[in-house]
Amino acid sequence: MDEIKQKIALFIDADNAPASKFEKVLSEVAKYGLVTIRKAYGNWKSPTLKGWEELLHEYAIQPIQQYDLTKGKNASDIAMVIDAMDIMYTKEIDVMCFISSDSDFTPMVTRALAEGKVVLGFGERKTPSPFVNACSKFLYLDAPETEEAEKEPKPKNLKSDAKLINLLRQAIEATEDDEGWAALGPVGSNISNRTSFDCRNYGFKNLSSLFKEVDLFEL
């Protein structure tokens, strides 16, 4: 299927996502296709959702009311999962997008992947790793903007990030030629096929910039 024609369903956990970053989400999602379903879940009587409420009409988002059934908890999570499951099996959807910093949606993401869907995740850095890692791609909404990051000193602890270094090294080994060289394109594709990694979460525009900062590989 032509990528630009892919249909996307967007689910917003308004209780656990920043409304101020919604344009950033739409900009990223637009790379994958057309958003045909947009739903936001939460207790719309709560003043904490005022930011999202102001976006509903502007972006044609359907609000789904969920009252707080128990103090400190809300029913939005289960309602969102039920709707997502229903849409996944009854609508022609290619990409499912979840905006939340809550790990409760991890089983839903896993199921969607098993059904052959691309799953995009968006949330803050407090998002538990199981949800982040389960997505096809996950972008931190509170990650430093690449334009701003370029003006500031880059983080100096990348070399000590064993998980990151192992990921880069394994991708190189999987795509290198007989002389030990690997092209950035295949390296990036290998990483994307294995994890939700995105170099922008580290403050870099592209993989090349990140490799230069790591400074452990010959370019």
Rank of each mutant, 00 (worst) to 15 (best):
Lys91Trp: 02
Tyr140Leu: 10
Phe138His: 07
Asn133Trp: 03
Val95Met: 03
Glu152His: 11
Asp94Gln: 05
Ser101Asp: 05
Lys126Cys: 10
Phe131Glu: 03
Phe98Tyr: 14
Phe98Trp: 07
Thr127Pro: 04
Glu152Tyr: 04
Glu150Arg: 13
Asp102Phe: 09
Lys126Pro: 05
Thr106Trp: 06
Ala143Leu: 07
Cys135Val: 07
Thr127Tyr: 02
Val132Asp: 08
Leu120Pro: 01
Arg125Cys: 12
Ile99Asp: 01
Asp102Lys: 11
Lys126Gly: 10
Asp104Asn: 12
Leu141Tyr: 06
Ser136Asn: 13
Val109Thr: 11
Lys126Leu: 13
Gly121Glu: 02
Glu92Met: 06
Glu148Phe: 08
Arg125Glu: 14
Met108Leu: 15
Thr106Leu: 05
Thr146Trp: 08
Phe98Leu: 15
Glu150Pro: 00
Thr146Ile: 14
Ser136Pro: 07
Thr127Gly: 07
Tyr140Met: 06
Asp142Ser: 11
Asp104Met: 07
Tyr140Phe: 14
Asn133Ser: 13
Val119Ser: 02
Val132Thr: 13
Pro130His: 08
Leu113Asn: 14
Ala134Pro: 04
Leu113Lys: 15
Ala149Gly: 04
Phe98Ile: 15
Gly121Met: 04
Asp102Arg: 12
Lys137Ser: 08
Ser136Gln: 05
Gly116Phe: 00
Val118Phe: 08
Ser129Cys: 06
Glu147Thr: 13
Arg111Cys: 03
Glu115Val: 00
Ala149Lys: 04
Gly123His: 07
Lys151Thr: 11
Leu141Gly: 07
Glu124Leu: 08
Val119His: 03
Glu150Tyr: 10
Glu145Phe: 11
Thr146Ala: 06
Arg125Gly: 15
Ser129Tyr: 11
Phe105Asp: 03
Pro130Ile: 05
Lys137Arg: 15
Thr110Met: 11
Leu120Asp: 02
Val132Ser: 13
Gly116Tyr: 05
Ala134Thr: 03
Pro144Tyr: 08
Pro107Tyr: 02
Glu147Arg: 11
Ala112Leu: 14
Met96Ile: 09
Glu124Phe: 05
